[in-house]
């Protein structure tokens, strides 16, 4: 929702937090936002977001650390690229959202269902170099725990059966990538390179 007010007190500018965000891989792009509002309109999940991207950028620039971690904005992004192709300032909003997700996870903000999904998905890739639905779902529900599983899970089970029936849900995972070690090493090296860049 866009009509969300941050707080009753004045927004006090915190340059420290803004600087940290700017230093993320695509973080500097946030500076370019001219607050036109195109992203909010373009967003497929705008109704789900508590801050539109442009408003989120304003929050980040003013350094509202807590509001950022509380917000679901980046988790709602479905990577449809609409905002990215439309942004008149050329801000790759989707890519910025990637960074915000990474940043939130790295800081331990993994409460949201999407964060759990992302982590499960990545674990799948990491462990076999390929995606396996069955593995993903198992990891996801394991991560969320029964306390939080809603009726969706049961529906998911039904859906899984239907898919199984139509030959679209293999029970066995695909063969792991032979060069899995290489895949893992590439990721590690790349992460290290990024870290080195950021330290510089």
């Amino acid at each position: 929702m866009t009509g969300f007010n941050v707080s009753s007190g004045p927004l006090k500018y915190d340059t420290e937090f803004a600087r940290e965000i700017y230093s993320l891989e695509n973080g500097h792009h946030i500076k370019k936002c001219m607050q036109c509002g195109m992203c909010e309109v373009s967003c497929a999940t705008r109704k789900e977001m508590d801050y539109s991207p442009r408003k989120m950028f304003l929050l980040l620039r003013t350094g509202q650390r807590e509001e950022f971690f509380k917000s679901n904005t980046m988790w709602m992004c479905s990577t449809c690229l609409m905002c990215k192709v439309r942004c008149p300032r050329g801000v790759p909003i989707v890519d910025v959202m990637h960074d915000l997700k990474c940043y939130a996870i790295s800081k331990g903000y993994t409460e949201r269902a999407q964060a759990a999904f992302y982590q499960s998905f990545w674990k799948e890739i990491w462990s076999r170099g390929k995606q396996f639905e069955g593995g993903l779902m198992a990891r996801y529900y394991l991560k969320r725990g029964w306390k939080d599983i809603r009726k969706d899970a049961f529906r998911m089970k039904d859906m899984g059966l239907t898919m199984l029936k139509h030959g679209r849900m293999p029970l066995m995972p695909p063969k792991s990538v032979k060069g899995l070690k290489d895949v893992q090493k590439l990721v590690e090296v790349a992460k290290a390179q990024l870290q080195k860049g950021a330290d510089r």
């Binding site: 007010n5 007190g9 004045p10 927004l11 500018y13 607050q35 408003k55 304003l58 929050l59 003013t62």
Partner: peptide, 11 residues
């Protein structure tokens, strides 16, 4: 801040 809809302060 008209675009945030809230008071703001640069100190």
């Amino acid at each position: 801040d008209l675009l945030m809809g809230s008071p703001t302060m640069a100190d």
